[in-house]
Design a protein around this nucleic acid. Structure first.
Length: 750
RNA sequence: GGGAGGUUAGCUCAGUCGGUAGAGCGCCUGCUUUACACGCAGGAAGUCAUCGGUUCGAGUCCGGUACCUCCCACCA
């Protein structure tokens, strides 16, 4: 414990913020082991930031809210475990490393080869990992860094393998040939969630398909003329009189030498377009299904590189899909088969990562059968095992869970967890039992000639296990038994499906217990006028720059006080400046108080309540009310309410009210020292409690001042959180002082 | 096409159980009052989107309308 001391006149957060962080981290205060033995655990797993990324405002908000909860609960005596980690970010990392490689050496990943490329990825990721963790520290996040996880490390790899092999042997992981979302730029399949549907205005072309028997034609309408080269039928509605005569006949497929049948299918909407639809089973999900119903062949005319294949015909093979479209339209025009076009708005799927237009293609991939998992998850959330804050998100979650589709978990990338599946020359699949080693022979035919699947898992296939894997699952570690399930998850709504819903599935499926008791879903951080941040608008705010300019305390407070009921959070210098002003206010109030307190005996903390006057009783009553309000607000995860209550109490009541009222008292030479000592004790107590109350929100300035005041800045993170004192409730004193203050205002007006 | 949310001061947002509307920023007027000009003391400013209903009383509860936002969605 340091001796109480003076504070410098200038409030300079940079002078002490990181000093306190390092001191507390090194003292092990952020580890659950710092709590008294037997303390009830309080566990939060950090949503792991991508190793490719830099801490952005969204992270700053999430980490701030988590830290407020963790610091508060820690001060309440809970064994707080806040687990930090970093995500290996499959596609994102591979993209960055590939780009770097190309810029540096002009080589592609294929040029350097898989092993070499993975080594480069590993080195790059290792170099970046520390940065992002330090950025989390800069915000003051009181994580237990001794337990830091990485989604691609040994324990996490074990968990991924265990999960997949378990699901496989339960019949819930399977390999199937289906129509998938293919990104030709990333050269991988994507899950449905990774597709951005964007409405786009395009054209709907009408094309005539002549009847094979000679006279007549059927005009089909399409938005993708280039795929006609892969048509294997034309479909019309069974009840459509216009086309009834053609059903069962064949048409000549223009630009090819093929003839294709006309089939009747209720899927066709007679009112749309021409009422006749070309069927291209290899390039359209609906047509793929229709082909199954009618036993039609698949003709693949677009390849995984988004170029036309040999099957597209001599004139088209090798063309890019866009060039192919132009050529097809030109050639149809020449053949006299174009029948006009009209504008049409259609939803188009784009790659979430690189915005490339996705191609629906048929390919063989690994899937997780999500139905049974979703059912268990929903049963748990319905039973209240996990509560959503705000509650309305449960509806969105329920809705998604009800309509859930199987999850495509394989990716044609190199960077990620390898898929533990082996194939023999005959195509038999061998997946080891959970916990078993790599197979040495085919499980079906005994062949020793096995090749491991060359794909890796979707990054989310490691993330969805987080609450389990970070505490050692599937091993029954001491951490697992103590810290699973976790207490709270704080996250933005944009990963509700990607991450939150899937974690609930993995927890309930593999362990039986939901992975967290509460999910706190916050909004998006926007700029100070409420606009979405974007590079193009140039309104992106770097939280770390803001920490340097205003102090991390101010950044945190600004975020907390704006984060209302799960809604978007306006943020910017106009929001941070008032928060810094508040920190400065606290600083200066403390400087004043120190001056008063140090004139008398330093240990002036014993309050003789019965002997106190009205003003002292008033501020104690208000302090108690503030404590009650802050505590209740935190219990309801109303960070904005808690911060506002603190701000209003400290500024309006303590500084503008109490301090101004006691000033003349301290300066009155006629007043006996014993009288002053009573008020000094109250001043001391109010300030001490205020700083403790403030600590979860502004950990640094609160420590710096507590250290000056009581010499215990090093222990503040584990100092008891203030509790409301019912004995201080004094409505009469409150009313008297409030009447007095109102009267003062009236007099000043005169 | 389905679903969710929003509309309160110039701006960004609070508003608990229905009882005479609040904050921050901005604006105006005074203040170098020895903690603080990142401050102090005051002030102006709202038809609570709109229509109807319930009620002694509605920003708050119920129904409709308008506009805005977002999410989900394989129909050409």
């Amino acid at each position: 414990m340091n001796a109480p001391h003076e504070l410098p006149k200038n409030f300079d957060p940079a002078a002490f913020e990181m000093k306190w962080y390092r001191l507390h981290e090194e003292a092990g205060l952020f580890r659950p082991e710092a709590a008294p033995p037997g303390a009830e655990p309080y566990v939060i797993v950090i949503p792991p930031p991508n190793v490719t990324g830099k801490l952005h405002v969204g992270h700053a908000l999430g980490r701030t809210l988590e830290d407020i909860l963790c610091r508060w609960r820690r001060m309440e005596g809970r064994a707080v475990l806040w687990l930090p980690g970093v995500d290996h970010a499959g596609i994102a990392t591979q993209m960055v490393v590939e780009r770097n490689l190309a810029e540096r050496t002009g080589q592609s990943r294929h040029d350097v080869g898989r092993e070499q490329f993975l080594e480069i990825c590993r080195e790059w990721a290792a170099a970046r990992r520390g940065d992002i963790l330090n950025q989390i520290r800069r915000l003051g996040s009181s994580c237990d860094f001794s337990r830091t996880y990485y989604t691609l490390d040994e324990p996490r790899s074990k968990a991924v393998r265990h999960a997949f092999t378990t699901l496989y042997h339960q019949g819930l992981a399977y390999r199937a040939e289906r129509m998938v979302n293919w990104c030709a730029r990333c050269a991988t399949v994507l899950s449905d969630l990774e597709v951005n549907h964007v409405e786009q205005s395009g054209l709907l072309w009408s094309i005539a398909y002549p009847l094979a028997e000679g006279s007549g034609e059927i005009v089909v309408a399409t938005t993708r003329p280039e795929t006609m080269l892969g048509d294997t039928a034309v479909a019309v509605h069974p009840e459509d009189d216009r086309y009834r005569h053609a059903v069962g006949k064949t048409v000549r497929l223009p630009l090819t030498d093929r003839t294709i049948p006309v089939v009747a299918d209720p899927l066709v909407d007679p009112k749309f377009g021409t009422g006749a639809v070309k069927i291209t089973p290899a390039h359209d999900p609906n047509d793929f299904d229709a082909a199954r119903r009618h036993g039609l062949a698949l003709v693949t005319v677009i390849g995984f590189d988004a170029k036309m294949t040999a099957a597209a015909g001599a004139g088209y093979a090798g063309l890019d899909r866009a060039e192919a479209r132009r050529k097809v339209l030109r050639d149809l025009e020449t053949a006299g088969l174009r029948r006009g076009e009209k504008t049409h708005v259609l939803p188009i799927g784009r790659c979430q990562r690189c915005d490339t237009v996705l191609e629906p293609l048929v390919s063989l991939q690994w899937y997780v059968k999500t139905g049974p998992l979703a059912e268990k998850a929903v049963a748990a959330t319905d039973a209240g095992e996990t509560r959503f804050v705000p509650e309305l998100w449960k509806k969105t979650y329920d809705e998604w869970m009800r309509n859930i589709r199987d999850w495509c978990v394989s990716r044609q990338l190199w960077w990620g967890h390898p898929i533990p599946a082996w194939y023999c020359a005959d195509g038999h699949v061998t997946v080891p039992a959970p916990g078993a080693d790599d197979p040495s022979a085919c499980g079906s035919c005994g062949s020793k000639n096995l090749t491991q699947d060359g794909d890796v898992f979707d990054t989310w296939f490691s993330s969805w296990l987080m609450p389990l894997s970070v505490v050692g699952w599937p091993e029954k570690t001491p951490d697992f038994s103590r810290f699973y399930p976790t207490t709270v998850l704080v996250t933005a709504f944009d990963i509700l499906f990607f991450w939150v819903a899937r974690m609930i599935m993995s927890g309930t499926w593999f362990d039986g217990r939901a992975p967290f008791a509460v999910v706190v879903i916050h909004g998006l951080v926007r700029d100070e006028s409420g606009l979405k941040m974007s590079k193009t608008k140039g309104n992106v705010i770097d939280p770390l720059e803001m920490c340097d300019a205003f102090g991390a305390d101010a950044v945190r407070f600004a975020l907390a006080i704006q984060s209302g009921t799960g809604r978007d959070v306006p943020f910017g210098t106009s929001r941070i400046a008032p928060a810094r002003a508040f920190a400065t206010k606290v600083w200066n109030a403390a400087r004043f108080a120190l001056g008063m307190l140090h004139e008398g005996e330093p240990e002036a903390s014993t309050i003789d309540y019965a002997a106190l006057g009205t003003v002292d009783r008033w501020i104690l009553a208000r302090l108690s009310a503030a404590i009650a309000k802050v505590t209740a607000s935190l219990e309801n995860t109303r960070f904005d309410e808690a911060a506002s209550a603190l701000y209003a109490f400290f500024w309006s009541e303590f500084c503008d009210g109490y301090v101004e009222m006691v000033k003349p008292l301290f300066r009155d030479p006629g007043l006996p020292e014993a009288e002053k000592a009573k008020t000094r004790a109250v001043l001391h107590r109010v300030l001490l409690d205020s700083l403790a109350l403030l600590h979860p929100f502004m950990p640094f300035v609160s420590c710096e001042i507590r250290d000056a005041l009581a010499g215990d800045g090093d222990r503040l993170p584990v100092t008891r959180f203030p509790r409301a004192e019912p004995a201080w409730d004094d409505p009469l004193a409150v009313q008297t002082v409030e009447t007095l203050r109102a009267a003062a205002t009236r007099i000043r007006n005169l």
